Amino acid sequence: MLDRPERLRDYPHALNARGGFMKVVILCGGFGTRIRDVADDIPKPMIPIGNLPIVWHIMKSYSAAGHKDFVLCLGYKSHAVKQFFLNYDIHGGDFTIALGAEKQITHHGEVRHDDWSVTLAETGLNAMTGARIRRIRKYLGDDENFLLTYGDGVSDVDLDALLEFHKSHGKILTVTGVHPPGRFGEIEHANGQVQGFNEKSQTTSGMISGGYFVCRREIFDYLDDREDLVFEVGPVRALVAAGEMMVYEHHGFWQCMDTYRDWSLLRDLWDSGKAPWKSWE
């Protein structure tokens, strides 16, 4: 695996070209209907854990591993995501604003500085996950691989180990398999080779899809621009049938935010200072 000394972590774009740090695609466009009892006026990725949205926590985890180039696939209430990043420096801090023709903002205390590149891509209000991924292809350039995840789940997955595993097998898609309750996409596998992928079924083996994918660019051969293209159904099952999908087993923390109870758990972990996904200072 590529050696990544700390001084190189500040140069993700240079490393992308050499197959090191990768762009991170985050699906942020869904309606999030199952968690409307937490917040109805913002999209799910913007629901706060602490005083910052869950998508920020996800991005901080990737950034801590050196991956600082993000593409966010937007849809429902996309303006809320755009406003957050357009006003990124003012969140969580005090400032004085002088109004008038020459408006000026003076920050007080520490100002948050994350050296990220964030592409905010409108991928359609009603588009399903497969269509959203297909529509951001132009933002990946010639990169051979990219990272893909959902904007509503956090984990302490070892991203370096995940990438090493992905590069070792040469298949098109790697999915991170986790072991929470059985209401998500079950993975059937043998010796790492995925043999079945059943979206939101009752589990039999106990391992389900936790997202945190790594994709080769050949993934786009399995995608088209149909609004109703669900990545986890047609494309993923075609990859399974072709023997082009592998599972990386993660036995640590993973938690999605689908319900009020999920949100309460994540909020309490963060507020108590015991958030397992916090890999940054």
Rank of each mutant, 00 (worst) to 15 (best):
W56V: 14
G243R: 05
M246R: 08
V236P: 07
C28E: 02
C73I: 08
F31K: 09
V178N: 01
F213S: 00
V194E: 11
C256H: 04
K171D: 03
E6Y: 14
E186Y: 07
H113V: 10
L72T: 05
Y150W: 06
F70Y: 05
V111L: 14
V233E: 15
P235L: 12
H108C: 06
S272H: 08
G93N: 10
W280S: 00
C215M: 12
W270Y: 14
A101Y: 07
L229T: 08
I49A: 12
L173S: 01
R132M: 15
H189Q: 14
E186K: 06
E244G: 04
D89A: 11
W116M: 10
G273N: 04
V81H: 02
H189P: 08
D160R: 13
A80E: 06
D89Q: 06
C215T: 03
I187D: 12
G211L: 03
Q202P: 08
E122I: 09
V175G: 00
W254Q: 00
N16V: 14
E110Y: 12
P276A: 01
I35Q: 05
L8Y: 07
R4M: 06
L239S: 13
F146P: 11
K103C: 10
L229N: 08
H57A: 08
R237Q: 15
A241K: 15
G243E: 07
L86D: 11
M59G: 12
N16A: 15
T123K: 13
V25L: 00
W280K: 00
K44L: 12
Q255D: 02
D228R: 13
Y222H: 13
W277E: 02
T203Q: 11
A242T: 07
K171A: 03
S117G: 10
E188W: 08
A127I: 10
Y248W: 05
G20D: 07
